[in-house]
Amino acid sequence: MQTELPPLKAWLLLGLLALIWGSSFLLIKKGLLGFSPDQLAAIRIASAGFVLLPFILKRFKTVKVHHWLKLICVGLVGSFIPAFLFAFAQTELPSGVTGVLNTFTPLATLIIGVLLFRQPARMQQWLGVVIGLVGTLLLVTASASGNFEFNRYGLLIIAATICYGLNLNLIKHHIPDLGALTITGVSLFLVAPPALAYLLLATPFTTTIQQPEAWFPLSAILLLGVVGTAMALIIFNTVVKLTDTTFTSSVTYLIPIVALILGVIDGEPFFIQQGVGLAAILVGVWIANRRKRQPLNPQR
């Protein structure tokens, strides 16, 4: 039996999703021109959480009592904490590099699944993890001089991918009875009020917003929250419904390419070491996620 090819609509939406998520790192960079990292992260989470509310109102009925604590955890490790980590990391890292480092997420998901959730892993998957780690090391030590200079801010991105990996495993192993849009939408809404409260009470946001030069960075952050998080989530779920998770996960390979291209267009340097690191991570992800072919069994 031949596998049905994904429809043209799915390919177009996948390309749009790659553009949205790939450009999010450049939007963070632009947002930091007018706002501090913690302000940027708080605005991003608050805008994404509240804009999704109309889409998830009916879904609150499907959330049971035992779901709430789990959804709060998902909101924290899947959105809230990574938003702050990315914002602080990009004060010292180019947007293209952060986009590439983010590709470590599937490998972090595998490692956490094995270590914390007793998920079985094949030798092939561990080979992919090792190759991905080598690529990550190349990226966090790349420099204009060609020498290996460790940038500790890259560790913030790795920490964010670990958060994403923990989040995906929590969803897979502890919230299998809720839909993806319900999980993400409700969990984002749960952390949006604390983010807004932090923004208004713990940062000089009201003073910063009055500066004329703040409007362009604010627009970039709102675009990041509304389009880069909320709309991207809806597109992602649409593609999953049109095809499957395997096809949708291929966006992992497109995001860093978009991030690097946009970074170079914006004037960021690109080193050969970064290209090698990118290739190593993508190869590692491909090897770790490649499925072993099953022999045909005519009796099945």
Rank of each mutant, 00 (worst) to 15 (best):
P176A: 10
L33R: 07
L17C: 02
D38F: 15
L32R: 01
G128I: 00
N167G: 05
V114N: 00
S249A: 14
I175H: 07
Q39V: 06
F247I: 08
I209W: 09
T245G: 12
R59A: 13
L188C: 11
I281D: 00
V264W: 15
G185A: 14
I28H: 03
L26H: 08
L107M: 11
L222E: 06
M123L: 15
A288S: 05
F60Q: 06
V276R: 05
L233F: 07
K61N: 13
K9N: 10
L138T: 00
T62A: 15
V100L: 02
H173F: 12
I28W: 03
I175Y: 09
K64M: 07
L139K: 05
D266H: 11
L8D: 12
T208N: 04
N102W: 07
L137R: 06
L199R: 03
A230S: 08
L201S: 14
L33D: 13
I209V: 15
T245N: 15
I112S: 01
E213P: 09
A192G: 00
I272W: 15
P212S: 13
T248V: 00
G267A: 13
P295M: 08
I111K: 02
A142W: 10
A41M: 09
R118K: 15
G146M: 00
A48D: 03
L139R: 05
S250A: 12
P7L: 11
S36A: 12
T207Y: 12
T105F: 04
T246M: 11
R300A: 14
K241F: 14
N297M: 05
V74T: 12
L5P: 15
A180H: 09
V134S: 08
A195Y: 00
C163D: 03
L14M: 12
A288P: 03
S79N: 13
H173G: 09
S249F: 11
V129M: 05
V140K: 04
P194D: 04
T136I: 15
L137N: 08
V51K: 01
G132Q: 02
G128T: 05
K30L: 15
W286G: 12
V239I: 01
V51R: 00
H67P: 02
L133P: 03
T238V: 08
Y153H: 05
T182L: 10
P194S: 04
V97T: 13
A230W: 01
I158P: 02
A288W: 00
G113F: 02
W21I: 09
F104N: 10
F104W: 14
I81A: 11
A279E: 11
L69F: 14
L71M: 15
I255T: 01
I157Q: 03
L178K: 04
